[in-house]
């Protein structure tokens, strides 16, 4: 980063001489250094989202540090990066979903909510008095057009994906996702695969204890976004651990 320290990295409202917006790049960096990874896969019958979470404290009440949220009945959002920022984006997403419903009397489509949240996050890169969000999110939805998976990053970019990863180990996760049979995969099949990826990309040296959270919105869940059943999660985690041990 050649221009660091030259004064062009202090504000989102000023480009550097070589055409970069450093604050946005720093925000992306904040996502990657925050420690968690979120991955998502669009399957033939729905979308599966997964996040890894380090256990902050042994005394913390189990299951109270959620990283996958409902935006509406048919939309889930998995987040990585600065949690407080992610909560802000989540609230905006819920507001957009409610507002769309009251205006059009129908559930907000996945691409619309992704576009609106991208616009919201982009807005935070345009004014000197705002700080970009230090969070990248994955949005899994199921509407009339079927299942969709989108990502939104701090710059306000949003793409639709067959499979996506955001956060610390996104590169390693993506290379593993590419190996999955994405055009034929079902949600049931995808769940243990995502668990395996989570275990393989986890950096054991840095922190030993972590847990994974998996949700889906698919035909099996009645096209509603829910966390996967407890027994399915247990067997997926077991598969992930077994794969990790076999690898070692």
């Amino acid at each position: 980063m050649a221009s660091i320290g030259t004064g062009y990295d202090q504000s989102t409202s000023t480009f550097s001489p070589d055409g970069r917006i450093f604050q946005v790049e720093y925000a992306v960096k904040a996502v990657d250094t925050s420690g968690s990874t979120a991955i998502g896969v669009k399957c033939v019958d729905g979308v599966v989202l997964a996040v890894e979470k380090s256990l902050v404290s042994k005394m913390m009440v189990h299951n109270t540090h959620k990283r996958i949220f409902h935006l509406d009945e048919h939309i889930g959002m998995a987040v990585s990066g600065v949690q407080a920022d992610a909560r802000n984006v989540m609230n905006r997403g819920r507001g957009e979903a409610t507002q769309y419903r009251s205006t059009y009397g129908d559930a907000i489509p996945g691409d619309v909510i992704a576009t609106r949240l991208a616009g919201y996050m982009h807005l935070h890169t345009m004014y000197w008095w705002l700080r970009p969000f230090g969070t990248s999110v994955l949005i899994g939805s199921y509407d009339q057009d079927g299942p969709q998976l989108h990502d939104v990053d701090p710059s306000g970019l949003s793409y639709r994906h067959f499979a996506a990863a955001v956060g610390k180990a996104k590169t390693a996760a993506k290379s593993q996702l590419e190996k999955l049979p994405l055009s034929t995969l079902t949600c049931r099949q995808a769940v243990p695969e995502l668990a395996k990826i989570m275990y393989s990309i986890h950096d054991d040296l840095k922190e030993k204890t972590f847990e994974i959270e998996i949700s889906w919105v698919c035909e099996e869940s009645g096209k509603k976004h829910t966390h996967i059943p407890a027994d399915l999660l247990t067997s997926a985690v077991a598969a992930g651990k077994a794969a990790k041990e076999a690898e070692e």
């Binding site: 949220f69 409902h70 935006l71 009945e73 409610t98 419903r101």
Partner: peptide
């Protein structure tokens, strides 16, 4: 019905 549906969805999101 709309008001109650909105309430229901808000509750669903609290999860």
């Amino acid at each position: 019905l709309q008001i109650l549906e909105q309430k229901r969805l808000a509750e669903y999101c609290v999860d």
